[in-house]
Computed example of a mutant assay.
Amino acid sequence: MDLNSLNIDTPLDLINQATQTGLIGSLGIEITKTGTGTVEGCMQLSEKNCRPDGILHGGANLAFAESLAGLGSMLMVDFENYDVLGIQVNGSHTSSLRKGKAYAVANILHPGNQTHIWNVDVRNEEGRLISTVRVTNMIVKRNDKY
């Protein structure tokens, strides 16, 4: 299975299998739930996504959020005819994470024809907010120059 065949009804095990060979797999991200306008996932802390002092790396945290929002947009479009391109990621880190897993919920705020805007909240296992991230994806017709 490849990412081009994803849709909202794609089973989670197939989504996770298709995403494990790239950055998503390297960071330890697992997709745990998909629905119309929402994607949830978790990321186990490891040396691959932490700073040398063991704290979750802010860049890995942003990549986690952008991955969920990007997948959400991919699940919402006709992926045979349109590409999803991340064009802006803006995050505010409110606390740090030193152990366990990070959990994130991505919710679409604007499901437009040309742009999707997502809010992604990343929390620790107890539910404390770690980061809140805004992701904007551009929806472009395949073969358009971009």
Rank of each mutant, 00 (worst) to 15 (best):
V122Y: 05
A106G: 01
S5Q: 14
Y103Q: 06
M76G: 04
S92V: 09
L27Q: 01
A69H: 00
N7G: 07
M76H: 06
S73T: 15
N90V: 07
E66N: 06
T32H: 08
D9Y: 10
A63G: 13
G41S: 08
V77T: 12
Q114D: 11
Y146K: 11
R128A: 14
G22V: 03
T115L: 15
N137M: 08
S67M: 05
L27G: 02
I31G: 02
S95G: 10
D144V: 02
L85Q: 08
I55R: 11
G58R: 07
L45N: 07
N107Y: 01
N119P: 05
S131Q: 04
A65H: 01
V105G: 00
N107S: 13
G41K: 02
N49I: 13
G59V: 05
V77I: 15
G100M: 04
L68G: 01
E40Q: 15
G35I: 06
E47R: 14
T136L: 06
T38L: 13
F64Q: 03
G91F: 05
S95N: 12
G37P: 06
M138E: 01
L129C: 08
R142Y: 04
I108E: 03
D121C: 06
T34W: 01
N4T: 09
A60D: 00
V39E: 02
E125G: 13
L56E: 01
Q17I: 03
R98I: 03
G28S: 08
T21Q: 13
R98H: 13
E126L: 12
E47S: 15
R51L: 12
L85Y: 12
V84E: 00
A63E: 11
R142D: 05
S96Y: 05
W118A: 08
V39T: 01
S46K: 05
D53A: 06
S26K: 13
G72Q: 02
D53T: 04
G72D: 00
N119V: 07
I31H: 03
E66F: 04
G127R: 07
G100A: 06
D53I: 03
G35D: 14
L27H: 01
K33I: 08
N90H: 12
L23W: 12
A102Y: 00
E30D: 12
A104M: 04
I117L: 14
L75H: 02
E125Q: 15
A106K: 00
L14A: 13
G25D: 04
R142T: 09
A63C: 12
A106R: 00
Q17M: 09
N4E: 13
T132V: 12
V105R: 13
L27Y: 02
Y82L: 05
V120I: 15
M43Q: 08
K141L: 14
L56N: 00
N7Q: 10
V140S: 08
A104L: 03
